[in-house]
Design a protein around this nucleic acid. Structure first.
Length: 225
DNA sequence: ACCCAGGGTCATA
DNA sequence: TATGACCATGGG
């Protein structure tokens, strides 16, 4: 049974896990592929990103120096299925330039998390969420990723106020949850899963997060509604 | 035919 | 500093 000392954020995690099961993120075979995916999935369905990554693999371009060697137009063509392909071609190149200049994965792995985060945020096309995706899922750092689903789900639960900024929200989660890479990994993946399945932007009345066939609907005993 | 997606940048007031 | 426009494909 849940202790009063247990944070609501811990309890929601357990309920999401019971409801949806482990998500096993990030789908990707290497840290570099994870980083590429993090950029390509900006405001884009993951299934579209997979097609773009498959194109890169076919062209043997899933590599920083190969990507930089591509013409903008041909890179964009490979990225076409992921949408915003012209913009993403530029962002991907900007990232690869930084990545190689910094000495690659092994060199970057030696950096302090805050320093790494700061550096990522200075790369054109990498904002807070993409930076944190990369830190958590590629560099295995205990950084909690915030996205639109996180805002939506937790404000509907009444656990946070609406309209909080990214850093503010991230600090709430990181203070409520002990730094645990595996837990942060699974939690964000579960939030995305729950958001896609049951917490739509325009929910039908009270349907959101309250489907009877989902354990998440049983918020009794959590102290949440 | 709509709605939405694992955001970020840039121009404007 | 705070909105709004813009980027674009593909699945439900």
């Amino acid at each position: 049974m849940a202790s009063k000392l247990t944070s609501p954020f811990e309890r929601v995690y357990q309920q999401l896990l019971d409801c949806h099961g482990p998500q096993r993120w990030w789908p990707g075979d290497s840290p570099f592929e994870v980083m590429v995916g993090a950029i390509l999935t900006q405001n884009t369905n993951w299934s579209n990103v997979e097609k773009a990554i498959a194109n890169l693999q076919e062209q043997e371009c899933l590599d920083a120096s190969q990507i930089l060697a591509c013409k903008d137009a041909s890179l964009a063509e490979m990225l076409r299925p992921s949408g915003y392909f012209n913009i993403k071609a530029k962002r991907l190149k900007a990232f690869c330039r930084w990545y190689l200049d910094a000495g690659g994965f092994k060199e970057l792995s030696g950096r302090d998390t805050d320093e790494l985060r700061h550096a990522l945020l200075h790369v054109h096309g990498i904002g807070p969420e993409t930076a944190d995706d990369i830190l958590l899922y590629a560099f295995q750092r205990p950084v909690f990723v915030i996205d639109a689903y996180t805002h939506r789900i937790f404000s509907r639960f009444g656990l946070i106020e609406e309209g909080l900024g990214y850093e503010h929200l991230r600090s709430i989660f990181e203070e409520a949850l002990s730094p645990d890479v595996a837990r942060y990994n699974e939690y964000h993946a579960l939030i995305v899963k729950h958001g896609k399945d049951q917490c739509r932007p325009k929910p039908r009345c009270a349907e959101c997060c309250l489907k009877p066939d989902c354990q998440q609907g049983n918020l009794a005993g959590t102290g949440i509604r």
